[in-house]
Computed example of a mutant assay.
Amino acid sequence: MSTTPEHDERIAKLIFASVYPHYVTKVEKKGRTKEELHEVIQWLTGYSEKDIENKIAEKVKFKDFFEKATINPNAELIKGVICGYRIEEIQTPLTKQTRYLDKLVDELAKGRKMEKILRG
């Protein structure tokens, strides 16, 4: 299933700080930690702990969040279905990067080992 321009635009306008608490809740409910969540975000984006905190405080949109990120070259190894979309078939880079993050958070919450999540 391919994304629509409206779907891509909706993701671009989402504020990272509004989604972040849901990520934290999801992983903590399954026995993982906020620190592990940050490790996953740092691996994908290249952001430091301070960068992540600043992005939350500045209430940046996903568009800006990923525009300034240095996406890990191994992110292309993230495959599968998330939110009804097959990641490897998504054409819009921003939507694909957002789904990468969703998939990593999902894997963390499901108890996958960190070295597998980080494609190590």
Rank of each mutant, 00 (worst) to 15 (best):
Q97N: 10
L101K: 02
G84E: 08
L44T: 11
T70R: 14
D51E: 11
E39F: 09
F62P: 03
G80Y: 01
K63M: 04
L108P: 00
E9L: 12
P73F: 06
K30L: 05
I117H: 01
F16G: 06
K63Y: 00
T98G: 12
M1P: 04
E9H: 12
K79L: 11
D106M: 09
H22I: 11
R86W: 11
G46R: 03
E76N: 15
D64R: 06
F62T: 04
N54I: 15
H7M: 10
L104D: 02
H22G: 15
E49F: 13
Q91G: 07
A57M: 07
I52S: 05
A57C: 11
A57D: 10
F65E: 01
C83H: 09
I11K: 04
Y23M: 13
K29E: 12
F66A: 02
E35G: 01
T70N: 15
G120N: 14
E89G: 03
I11W: 02
H22Q: 10
H22R: 13
I82R: 01
G46N: 01
L77Q: 06
Y85Q: 08
H7S: 11
K79A: 05
T4M: 01
K55M: 14
V81P: 09
I90H: 06
G31P: 08
H7D: 13
P93W: 01
K110D: 13
A75C: 13
T95R: 11
E9T: 09
R99G: 15
K110A: 07
K30S: 15
A57Q: 13
D51F: 05
L101T: 04
K61I: 07
I15K: 12
F16H: 10
K26V: 04
K110I: 08
R99D: 14
K63E: 04
V60C: 09
R119P: 09
S48P: 11
L104P: 03
E6T: 14
E39Q: 15
F65C: 01
P5V: 02
N74T: 07
H7E: 15
Y100F: 07
K113T: 10
F66Q: 01
H38E: 15
R32I: 02
E53A: 07
H38N: 15
H7F: 11
T98K: 13
E28Y: 13
D106R: 13
E88Y: 10
Y47R: 08
Y23C: 05
T4P: 00
A57K: 11
K13Q: 09
G46F: 03
F65S: 01
K55S: 11
L101V: 01
E58T: 14
D64Y: 02
E35M: 05
I87F: 04
L104M: 06
G80V: 06
H38A: 11
V60R: 11
L14G: 09
E9C: 09
